[in-house]
Amino acid sequence: MENIDFINWIIIGIPFIFLLGCLFHFIYTLSGNITLIGIISPVNESVWEHLKLAFYPILIWGIIQCCILNKFNKFNLETYVISLAISILLAIFFILSFYYISTGAFNIHSVIWDIFSFFLSITFSQLISIYVYENIIPSNRMFSISLFILLSLAFIFTVFTFIPPKYPIFKDSTTNKYGT
Protein backbone atom coordinates (compact mmCIF):
# COMPACT_ATOMS: atom_id res chain seq x y z
CA MET A 1 0.00 0.00 0.00
CA GLU A 2 2.84 2.39 0.85
CA ASN A 3 4.40 2.17 -2.62
CA ILE A 4 1.06 2.55 -4.42
CA ASP A 5 0.48 5.92 -2.73
CA PHE A 6 4.03 7.01 -3.48
CA ILE A 7 3.78 5.94 -7.13
CA ASN A 8 0.46 7.78 -7.55
CA TRP A 9 1.95 10.94 -6.11
CA ILE A 10 4.94 10.72 -8.45
CA ILE A 11 2.69 10.23 -11.50
CA ILE A 12 0.40 13.11 -10.43
CA GLY A 13 3.50 15.20 -9.91
CA ILE A 14 4.69 14.96 -13.51
CA PRO A 15 2.13 17.40 -14.98
CA PHE A 16 2.33 19.59 -11.84
CA ILE A 17 6.12 19.88 -12.14
CA PHE A 18 5.90 20.48 -15.90
CA LEU A 19 3.26 23.22 -15.60
CA LEU A 20 5.01 24.86 -12.65
CA GLY A 21 8.27 24.81 -14.62
CA CYS A 22 6.52 26.45 -17.58
CA LEU A 23 5.08 29.11 -15.26
CA PHE A 24 8.47 29.69 -13.66
CA HIS A 25 9.87 30.52 -17.10
CA PHE A 26 7.89 33.76 -17.08
CA ILE A 27 7.46 34.79 -13.44
CA TYR A 28 10.71 36.75 -13.11
CA THR A 29 9.79 39.07 -15.97
CA LEU A 30 6.14 39.23 -14.91
CA SER A 31 7.19 40.12 -11.36
CA GLY A 32 9.06 43.17 -12.60
CA ASN A 33 12.42 41.45 -12.05
CA ILE A 34 12.03 40.94 -8.31
CA THR A 35 15.32 39.55 -6.99
CA LEU A 36 13.70 36.95 -4.75
CA ILE A 37 11.74 35.57 -7.73
CA GLY A 38 14.99 35.47 -9.74
CA ILE A 39 16.40 33.00 -7.24
CA ILE A 40 13.85 30.34 -8.25
CA SER A 41 13.19 31.27 -11.89
CA PRO A 42 15.37 32.08 -14.90
CA VAL A 43 16.67 35.64 -15.01
CA ASN A 44 17.93 35.24 -18.58
CA GLU A 45 17.92 32.80 -21.49
CA SER A 46 21.06 30.87 -20.53
CA VAL A 47 21.03 27.10 -20.36
CA TRP A 48 22.04 27.27 -16.70
CA GLU A 49 19.13 29.47 -15.69
CA HIS A 50 16.71 27.13 -17.45
CA LEU A 51 17.82 24.26 -15.22
CA LYS A 52 15.91 26.05 -12.45
CA LEU A 53 12.73 25.12 -14.33
CA ALA A 54 13.32 21.53 -13.26
CA PHE A 55 15.12 21.98 -9.94
CA TYR A 56 12.69 24.18 -8.06
CA PRO A 57 9.40 22.65 -9.29
CA ILE A 58 10.65 19.13 -8.50
CA LEU A 59 11.83 20.33 -5.09
CA ILE A 60 8.53 22.13 -4.40
CA TRP A 61 6.50 19.09 -5.45
CA GLY A 62 8.80 16.92 -3.35
CA ILE A 63 8.17 19.06 -0.26
CA ILE A 64 4.40 19.01 -0.87
CA GLN A 65 4.46 15.24 -1.37
CA CYS A 66 6.66 14.77 1.68
CA CYS A 67 4.34 16.79 3.93
CA ILE A 68 1.19 14.99 2.78
CA LEU A 69 2.54 11.45 2.76
CA ASN A 70 4.44 11.96 6.01
CA LYS A 71 1.20 13.09 7.67
CA PHE A 72 -0.31 9.71 6.86
CA ASN A 73 2.90 7.71 7.48
CA LYS A 74 2.81 6.52 3.88
CA PHE A 75 6.51 6.57 3.07
CA ASN A 76 10.09 6.38 4.30
CA LEU A 77 11.63 9.86 4.56
CA GLU A 78 15.25 8.77 4.13
CA THR A 79 14.47 6.75 1.02
CA TYR A 80 12.34 9.59 -0.32
CA VAL A 81 15.06 12.24 0.06
CA ILE A 82 17.53 9.97 -1.72
CA SER A 83 15.10 9.37 -4.60
CA LEU A 84 14.31 13.12 -4.75
CA ALA A 85 17.99 14.05 -5.04
CA ILE A 86 18.53 11.43 -7.74
CA SER A 87 15.42 12.62 -9.59
CA ILE A 88 16.65 16.22 -9.61
CA LEU A 89 20.15 15.25 -10.74
CA LEU A 90 18.69 13.10 -13.52
CA ALA A 91 16.31 15.86 -14.66
CA ILE A 92 19.28 18.22 -14.94
CA PHE A 93 21.30 15.57 -16.78
CA PHE A 94 18.45 14.82 -19.22
CA ILE A 95 17.79 18.51 -19.93
CA LEU A 96 21.46 19.17 -20.62
CA SER A 97 21.75 16.02 -22.74
CA PHE A 98 18.67 16.78 -24.83
CA TYR A 99 19.76 20.39 -25.31
CA TYR A 100 23.38 19.80 -26.25
CA ILE A 101 22.68 16.76 -28.41
CA SER A 102 19.87 18.50 -30.30
CA THR A 103 21.71 21.79 -30.79
CA GLY A 104 25.28 20.53 -31.04
CA ALA A 105 24.84 17.28 -32.93
CA PHE A 106 21.70 17.99 -34.95
CA ASN A 107 21.58 21.81 -35.05
CA ILE A 108 17.97 21.77 -33.85
CA HIS A 109 16.80 25.11 -32.46
CA SER A 110 13.12 24.75 -31.67
CA VAL A 111 11.01 26.01 -28.79
CA ILE A 112 8.64 23.09 -29.35
CA TRP A 113 11.52 20.63 -29.05
CA ASP A 114 12.80 22.43 -25.92
CA ILE A 115 9.38 22.17 -24.28
CA PHE A 116 8.96 18.52 -25.30
CA SER A 117 12.45 17.60 -24.09
CA PHE A 118 11.71 19.38 -20.79
CA PHE A 119 8.58 17.25 -20.40
CA LEU A 120 10.53 14.08 -21.24
CA SER A 121 13.26 15.01 -18.77
CA ILE A 122 10.74 15.53 -15.99
CA THR A 123 8.91 12.30 -16.85
CA PHE A 124 12.05 10.16 -17.08
CA SER A 125 13.51 11.54 -13.87
CA GLN A 126 10.26 11.04 -11.94
CA LEU A 127 9.77 7.49 -13.20
CA ILE A 128 13.34 6.60 -12.29
CA SER A 129 12.74 8.03 -8.82
CA ILE A 130 9.96 5.45 -8.38
CA TYR A 131 12.46 2.68 -9.21
CA VAL A 132 15.02 4.15 -6.81
CA TYR A 133 12.47 4.54 -4.02
CA GLU A 134 11.27 0.95 -4.40
CA ASN A 135 14.70 -0.65 -4.72
CA ILE A 136 17.25 1.31 -2.75
CA ILE A 137 18.33 0.31 0.71
CA PRO A 138 18.87 3.66 2.42
CA SER A 139 21.70 4.45 4.77
CA ASN A 140 22.41 7.48 6.91
CA ARG A 141 25.35 8.29 4.66
CA MET A 142 23.24 8.21 1.48
CA PHE A 143 20.59 10.33 3.20
CA SER A 144 23.19 12.88 4.32
CA ILE A 145 24.77 13.04 0.87
CA SER A 146 21.33 13.52 -0.71
CA LEU A 147 20.49 16.39 1.65
CA PHE A 148 23.89 17.92 0.93
CA ILE A 149 23.24 17.69 -2.83
CA LEU A 150 19.83 19.35 -2.53
CA LEU A 151 21.11 22.18 -0.33
CA SER A 152 24.22 22.63 -2.48
CA LEU A 153 22.18 22.89 -5.67
CA ALA A 154 19.90 25.52 -4.11
CA PHE A 155 22.97 27.46 -2.96
CA ILE A 156 24.74 27.16 -6.33
CA PHE A 157 21.65 28.20 -8.30
CA THR A 158 21.33 31.25 -6.06
CA VAL A 159 24.98 32.30 -6.23
CA PHE A 160 25.30 31.70 -9.99
CA THR A 161 22.16 33.74 -10.63
CA PHE A 162 23.97 36.82 -9.38
CA ILE A 163 27.62 35.90 -9.92
CA PRO A 164 27.72 33.52 -12.90
CA PRO A 165 31.03 32.13 -14.14
CA LYS A 166 32.00 33.28 -17.63
CA TYR A 167 31.33 29.96 -19.36
CA PRO A 168 28.95 29.33 -22.29
CA ILE A 169 26.35 27.49 -20.19
CA PHE A 170 25.82 30.73 -18.20
CA LYS A 171 25.64 33.06 -21.22
CA ASP A 172 22.26 34.53 -22.17
CA SER A 173 21.65 33.37 -25.74
CA THR A 174 19.71 36.55 -26.63
CA THR A 175 21.86 39.27 -25.04
CA ASN A 176 25.23 37.50 -24.81
CA LYS A 177 25.45 38.73 -21.20
CA TYR A 178 25.84 36.82 -17.95
CA GLY A 179 23.51 36.92 -14.94
CA THR A 180 20.75 39.41 -14.19
Rank of each mutant, 00 (worst) to 15 (best):
I4H: 08
G13L: 09
F18Y: 12
L20T: 14
L23K: 00
L23I: 15
H25E: 04
G32E: 04
I34C: 04
I34V: 13
I37K: 02
I39F: 02
K52H: 11
L53F: 04
F55H: 11
Y56E: 07
P57Q: 05
P57L: 06
P57A: 06
I58D: 11
I64A: 09
Q65W: 07
C66S: 14
C67H: 01
K71M: 10
F72Y: 14
K74M: 14
K74Y: 00
N76Y: 06
N76H: 08
E78K: 15
Y80H: 15
V81W: 00
S83E: 12
L84M: 09
S87L: 11
S87C: 15
I88Y: 00
L89C: 12
L89E: 12
L90N: 04
L90H: 12
I92M: 09
I92R: 01
I92E: 07
F93P: 01
F93S: 03
F94H: 08
F94T: 11
I95R: 10
S97V: 09
F98N: 07
F98A: 05
Y99R: 06
I101S: 07
S102W: 09
T103G: 10
N107H: 12
I112V: 15
D114I: 01
F116R: 05
I122C: 05
T123F: 03
T123M: 09
Q126W: 10
I130S: 05
Y131I: 15
Y131W: 09
V132Q: 02
E134C: 08
I136K: 13
I136P: 02
I137W: 00
N140Y: 00
N140Q: 11
L147K: 13
L147D: 02
L147N: 12
S152Y: 11
A154N: 10
I156V: 15
V159L: 13
F160N: 05
F162Q: 05
P165A: 01
K166E: 14
I169N: 01
F170M: 10
F170C: 04
G179Q: 04
T180S: 11
